[in-house]
Design a binder for these strands. Structure first.
Lengths: 342, 342
DNA sequence: TTGTAAGCGTTATCAA
DNA sequence: TTGATAACGCTTACAA
């Protein structure tokens, strides 16, 4: 455990002032390039490493971005995080990641920790049942940029990064209708969340536009777990008037639903067509493979991180950008192709 | 953007010294409990938040744990990370996560960043082709605890957290043999990595013990991607003497192999039995569902984080613990049950 | 182009 | 039980 080298040590060794050393190490313009070379070389030689805390303390900045997500361990979220990490890393920002485990209470605690950690900015996808955002007010008040992604909450001071969930829902359901479905079930999540509310709106819009009635009893609000998929299939079996198509807003849930339907003797897609959401790898593995909405997770992570970093570097004012919408699209596979030769 | 409250502000307001305030806020034993109550209340009232940087600078400690993983976006890894985050959060440690994207070069860069961020400890699962660990020497020299998990590198100063991969491989292959397989193929990853080398050893051990020959041409080293699974299936089809069982050390790769085999006209498990590794949710979705080794990912994350934190808190000396082995077990499903009525 | 010196907000040591 | 004071290592007016 050797002693830590500081800019004072380097300064003394080179008979320069600590200030000069600091400037050289930070690429300050007003410094002689020979001096700079000299200092850099000596720093390396002495095994100097910058003390981020001293620097942060002095500059009142942390080069750290906080991320709060419902869960780390879903394919979608880990893809988003991978995208964020990539961008942040390249811009030499650190990522502090925490999960709310879908609980507002834990989300509040996480927000507090992030606040105390003095993150330069915060990227959030809210928990299942968050409805107030008082716990983020502290950030807003202090001018710490706050950016929501995927599961967003509209706020005039915050930017949201989303896909067009209404359109995605519309596309999915329109596709089912075009395949001949006339009675389409919709399995979704908590309608408090923009993502689910919007997809439902898209579902309704597609029905309306094609002259089909909206039947509330066909909308099933669940936690979108695997069990929910199984449960949905069972419920379908017990319905007096069975649907001929189902749009599930999560691939894993959809896949479980599909499998259970098959076990119960349904033929997919002929008896009932299934469409999922996210384009999780699992959708390509099930038989028949699952039609779904491709969700650009990595891209969303990259855009979120980049926007925040640009804002922090003064390259873009995020307060003026209210919403960024990414492109998503329907991926047609065999679970919905009624006249398929699969 | 109001002014940040410091312990000086609180001290002034209560006509106490900053030292007393600091002590009260940190639950120092030698402080009057009335004073403590008073200070705590005032801190809350004034909206005080501790300045971690000043504290870190002074205490030479960061309460931050660094994590370097090959990829964030695999089911296995995100489960591990979720476990780590849970434990770290409860112990009020922050997690800085970065991914090497399977490249040694990036891993080296990540290590450097972590070093400069002065993490209190480091949790690492190495990249595909890392063979030296010079880039971690700096940590070891400085006495910063370094803990490897899953893909580990043996080092006398570092603890490893693993499952018994030899046994897992042995169990998988023994199961195949017991199901009547006599010619078993093995699809695995870079044998530099303990996980794959050990599983191969287990494979060989099982063969030997059951009097079956070891045929090197049946071992296929791949990157365990989905494409590798497909490729393996094709290769099987083209073999003059086809295997009747295959053990793939990754579920997603196994699933792709299985699906392709079916497409090529093989019956699974009757023509060829398939066993995977990890117990990824996808293994329950494929038909027939996949026999696999259950890997305790969340547990591994928790144990890794907890061990490190205990060490940091002086509750346990990690240097003396060389290896922690977690329990894993075979999960038999239908992809390997030759006489199944599935 | 370089140097001086004053903090940033804590905590640890020593003294009271 | 509390207080005074000196660091921790860096950055940045301001001065030279």
């Amino acid at each position: 455990m050797e002693k830590e080298i500081t800019i004072y040590d380097i300064a003394k060794r080179l008979k320069l002032s600590p200030a000069t050393v600091s400037r050289a190490l930070n690429d300050h313009p007003a410094i002689n390039s020979d001096t700079k070379t000299l200092i850099t070389a000596m720093a390396r030689q002495m095994g100097y490493r910058t003390n981020t805390f001293a620097s942060n303390l002095r500059r009142q900045r942390t080069n750290t971005i906080g991320v709060i997500v419902p869960r780390l361990n879903s394919n979608f979220m880990s893809t988003v995080l991978a995208g964020m990490e990539k961008v942040a890393n390249e811009a030499s920002y650190n990522l502090i990641i925490s999960q709310s485990l879908e609980s507002v209470k834990k989300e509040i605690a996480n927000a507090k920790t992030m606040f105390n950690s003095r993150v330069d900015g915060l990227l959030v996808s809210v928990a299942y049942d968050t409805d107030k955002i008082d716990h983020f007010e502290a950030f807003i008040k202090k001018g710490i940029p706050l950016l929501f992604f995927d599961r967003v909450i509209e706020h005039k001071q915050c930017t949201s990064i989303v896909i067009d969930n209404v359109k995605a829902g519309y596309d999915a359901v329109t596709h089912l209708i075009e395949q001949g479905c006339r009675r389409i079930m919709h399995v979704t999540g908590n309608l408090k969340r923009n993502v689910y509310a919007d997809r439902l709106a898209g579902y309704q819009q597609a029905l309306r536009q094609h002259g089909l009635p909206y039947d509330e009893s066909l909308v099933m609000v669940t936690d979108l777990s695997q069990e929910a998929g199984t449960e949905a299939a069972r419920r379908i079996q017990n319905m007096p008037e069975r649907p001929d198509g189902v749009f599930v807003t999560n691939d894993f849930c959809a896949v479980c639903c599909l499998i259970t339907l098959k076990k119960l003797g349904f033929s997919v897609p002929d008896d009932i067509a299934v469409v999922g959401f996210n384009d999780d790898p699992v959708s390509q593995v099930v038989e028949p493979d699952l039609t779904t909405i491709h969700y650009p997770g990595a891209k969303m992570g990259e855009v979120a991180a980049q926007s925040l970093i640009n804002h922090l570097n003064g390259l873009l004012d995020i307060q003026t950008t209210n919403k960024i919408i990414l492109h998503s699209e329907l991926v047609v596979r065999h679970s919905s192709l009624k006249s398929s030769s699969y």
